[in-house]
Design a binder for these strands. Structure first.
Length: 846
RNA sequence: GGGCGAUUAGCUCAGCGGGAGAGCGCCCGCUUCACACGCGGGAGGUCGCUGGUUCGAUCCCAGCAUCGCCCACCA
């Protein structure tokens, strides 16, 4: 190694992430690139990044997802796959509206005042200024995304793809317009989907109201929490099996206040044991009642408008706010002696996930998508195992939703988004077209007005895996990189996004967009609450990267990635940061202390060599297999144990006696193995800890490509020696015990067969004597000349021997225990038998 | 109401049918020639509770308790 490089290694006694990360990332981008090669014949490996909202800042979820995906990308790149990690952001209609409308409010204006065109222009301006900061933040984590082809769901080409999708589905009859009850969010001024409604407890009152039965002097009493909607009642329903009311079915009731005569119907939806067992049916203002209404062909009356006030349909109440109307209705019912009772009532009420406003179910004309056939095709893929959820049990979430799928309301009353490609002429004809038409398709009128609504953001997200590759235009990137391999996301958007991508991928590409769906853990705040900005429980990943380095952060997040909910623990990142430093220093030691002439090679000269080579082969085998099965926590744990305990604590320490000894040949041999093991280890750790490993790689001897694009190590399975590893564990205990005794001021003596593992460590230890004895069955440590401790040792060994023997004598044990367990017990019995006789010999010698 | 998951050392978590583990924290000793972001040694646990299966249960089964997340149209 050149003198300057040596000096640098000697000087840098600590790994300093902040000093190397930016430089290495820049080299990766410049010298290697992350764009994938559409021309290559190599097998592809493709992941589409779940596009973060343009409004977003990197949060813990992104950092975890990013760490996992980048680890997978790097592993497969090192395997020689043609890798592509699709990169981009989502236009996030509602979130962007929130940002811009807040700005407008601060300026004393509103979106209505500035108008649609100016509003949208303003959004673009904001987008140009702030850019997608979150994508830049992912670079800090080391993510090797295809930044050169970054996409945005509002890009020209992407918008075309969305329009194309709409038109095709419309032509197929799957998209249609209908009056339906929808979740109206007064805050958003738009509908929101069922998945964007949160249910929260609310304290309301339950009113019992008497409805006169037509042609009698009797009453039917119903229970309601929304008396103001009485004005829109179009039936009263009871359960068909309810003997109390069976005789009333087919008769009519008079709706209080408005005096409308409505049928009394029977419907199984009604719960006999709730309230009075009679339900007022208001199709215009309740989703369930809407369904009942459709089943029975009832009129749909709206008395509440989109402005949150009573509409003209409500007659004398028109113009009142809903709350005021409610009070007035109650007063009227009371004065007319129709209010039978009132009691406090706590129940769940829908709130908008974004704004927190209480959802108002309203009937309106919206665009819908029929999901049944699409869902059936997607479900078949999941049922057959062709699409696999990991962990498997997350499928339940998917199926629960998909097996009960309902039409999807895809129109939103917003301005920022993909405007629905439907134009209306004054005669009301529809023209549906990807490009703006010049004339009505039916009557030729040139006076066309475009549907003002935009599409649900998830509509465009659903085609992310292929619209990002240039669909619908045929092209090489699309042909090469679709379908992808795995989707990595959190379980809260399994239905919102994953299911819809599956359906659209199958519909438009004829093939599932990915085979594996890896559902990550969700990291909670340290106190067990949800991590969220609003709760103030969030942790900024960029701060973590500063504190622990990108490698430490990635390591820590992967380590936390075990169960479905896990509490954030800084300790795990700290562990990662320390491991990076440990690895750096192990590299310094190996590169500075070994014979520079030694050619890196796995030379199995001593027992320690064979042992570390066995451990290395086993570790490579396991760590890679665990990454392949998405068991990141286990993988990272295996890396840690090998690097810190096996390599640094035991092998490097044991190697020192040869390294610093007089035997030149031994020095060269152990040097060769040390460098070889280091090289393999660093390559193995690269997917998880890319920066420190790349930095070390640069100091390894010889001309070499960057580690990013170097091959992943192959486990040398012929190096594996489980018996040796087992006896190593025993010898480790002997070494520890000798150290303890020496620490207590004893003068321990170790009797060991020649070539026993780690005796080199004892020979270097102060106050420990080592005695080579070919007859020794196992390494045994005794306190020199101390009859008492020898006897104690003998007693313990006899007890262990007896224990193993009695187990073997137990018929039930022999009959049921697996063969390898029985063998292990047998070996144990033999080993302790050997130890017993060793100690006995030493006792006699005293 | 339904689904999923958790309950193991002071803290965060592994282990999931055959002798209770890691990291951090704590105690003792080390300026040992890679690393004090270190080295060596150590203390600390009736593995939530109750039953069951088994020769044997932290691990499997049932029930209970507590906590978390997701889903859900009881007016």
């Amino acid at each position: 190694m050149a003198g300057a490089r040596r000096d640098e290694l000697e000087r840098r006694t600590r790994h300093q992430p902040e000093a190397v990360e930016a430089r290495l990332f820049e080299r990766w981008e410049r010298e290697c690139g992350f764009s994938g090669d559409p021309e290559s014949d190599a097998e592809t490996y493709v992941i589409a990044l779940p596009p973060p909202n343009v409004t977003g800042e990197l949060h813990m979820g992104h950092a975890l997802n990013g760490s996992i995906q980048d680890t997978l990308m790097r592993l497969h790149r090192m395997r020689g796959r043609n890798t592509l990690w699709i990169c981009g952001t989502d236009h996030a209609s509602i979130a962007v509206h929130a940002v811009i409308e807040k700005q407008l409010r601060a300026e004393g204006t509103t979106r209505i005042d500035v108008g649609r065109e100016a509003f949208v222009e303003r959004v673009w301006e904001w987008r140009r200024e702030t850019g997608a900061t979150i994508i830049q933040q992912l670079k800090r984590l080391g993510c090797t995304l295809d930044y050169d082809h970054e996409r945005f769901t509002m890009d020209e080409g992407y918008v075309r793809a969305v329009m194309e999708m709409f038109v095709r589905l419309y032509d197929k009859g799957l998209i249609y317009r209908d009056n339906r009850i929808v979740n109206w969010c007064p805050g958003c001024g738009s509908t929101v989907s069922d998945l964007e409604v949160r249910h929260e407890r609310a304290a309301d009152a339950l009113y019992e109201v008497r409805y006169p039965i037509h042609g009698t002097d009797q009453f039917l009493t119903v229970a309601t929490v929304r008396p103001e909607t009485i004005l829109a009642d179009t039936a009263v329903a009871v359960h068909p099996d309810d003997d109390r009311y069976r005789h009333l079915v087919g008769k009519t009731a008079i709706v209080p206040i408005v005096g409308r005569e409505v049928p009394i119907i029977a419907d199984e939806y009604v719960k006999m044991d709730f309230g009075t067992g009679a339900l007022k049916v208001t199709p215009g203002h309740d989703p369930n009642d809407f369904e009942i209404g459709r089943r029975h062909g009832l009129p749909e009356i709206s008395v509440i408008g989109f402005d949150g006030r009573m509409s003209a349909e409500s007659g004398e109440f028109a113009g009142l706010a809903v709350g005021e109307a409610r009070q007035k209705v109650i007063d009227r019912l009371f004065s007319e002696q129709l209010l039978h009772g009132e009691r406090p009532y706590e129940h769940e009420v829908g709130h908008c996930d974004r704004t927190g406003d209480r959802i108002e179910p309203l009937i309106s004309l919206q665009w819908f998508m029929q999901m049944d056939s699409l869902a059936a095709a997607a479900n078949a893929e999941v049922r057959s195992g062709s699409v696999r959820f990991v962990p498997r049990n997350q499928e339940a979430i998917y199926f629960h939703w998909m097996d009960n799928i309902r039409p999807w309301c895809i129109s939103r009353q917003l301005w920022w988004g993909h405007q629905i490609p439907v134009w209306y002429c004054p005669d009301g004809h529809r023209t549906v077209s990807v490009e703006p038409p010049t004339a009505c398709g039916e009557c030729g009128s040139a006076e066309l007005e475009r549907d003002p609504d935009v599409l649900d953001t998830w509509f465009s997200s659903a085609l992310w895996p292929f619209a990002t590759l240039g669909w619908p235009e045929p092209n090489e990137r699309l042909a090469t990189f679709y379908p992808g391999n795995v989707l990595v996301t959190a379980r809260d958007i399994i239905n919102l996004w994953v299911a819809r991508m599956l359906m659209m991928g199958i519909e438009f590409m004829g093939e599932k967009p990915f085979s594996d769906v890896y559902i990550t853990s969700i990291i909670q705040a340290a106190d067990g609450r949800r991590m969220s900005k609003s709760l103030g429980t969030g942790v900024n990943p960029l701060d973590l990267i500063e504190q622990f380095g990108a490698d430490g952060t990635r390591y820590g997040l992967l380590k936390m990635s075990s169960t479905q909910d896990v509490r954030f623990s800084e300790g795990m990142l700290d562990e990662g940061a320390k491991l990076a430093n440990k690895l750096w220093n192990a590299a310094r030691f190996v590169l500075l202390q070994t014979d520079p002439e030694a050619e890196p090679a796995p030379l199995a000269t001593t027992a320690e060599d064979r042992w570390i080579l066995s451990r290395l082969a086993g570790t490579i085998d396991e760590v890679v297999a665990q990454l392949d099965s998405y068991d990141f926590a286990a993988s990272v744990k295996g890396l840690y144990g090998f690097i810190w305990n096996d390599f640094c604590d035991w092998y490097v320490e044991a190697a020192k006696s040869r390294l610093y000894g007089d035997d030149e040949a031994a020095r060269r041999q152990v040097s060769a193995t040390l460098v070889w093991v280091l090289e393999q280890t660093v390559a193995l750790a690269h997917p998880v800890m890319p920066f420190v490993t790349e930095e070390i790689w640069g100091f390894l001897p010889g001309e070499r490509a960057m580690l990013l694009v170097s091959p992943v190590p192959e486990p040398q399975l012929d190096h594996r020696d489980p018996a040796l590893e087992e006896s190593a564990r025993n010898d480790m205990e002997v070494v520890s015990e000798a150290r303890r005794l020496a620490g207590e001021g004893e003068r321990p003596l170790v009797t060991a067969a020649p070539g026993s593992l780690f005796m080199a460590l004892l020979e270097r230890a102060k106050g420990v004597a080592v005695e080579q004895d070919a007859a020794a069955a196992a390494a045994v440590v005794v306190a020199r000349g101390d009859r008492e401790s020898l006897e104690a040792k003998l007693k313990a060994a006899v007890a262990e021997h007896e224990r193993a023997r009695s187990k073997l004598a137990n018929e039930g044990f022999l009959a049921r225990a697996p063969a390898q367990v029985v063998d292990a017990e047998r070996e144990k019995a033999e080993r302790f038998a050997g130890e017993v006789s060793d100690i006995q010999r030493r006792l006699e010698a005293l």
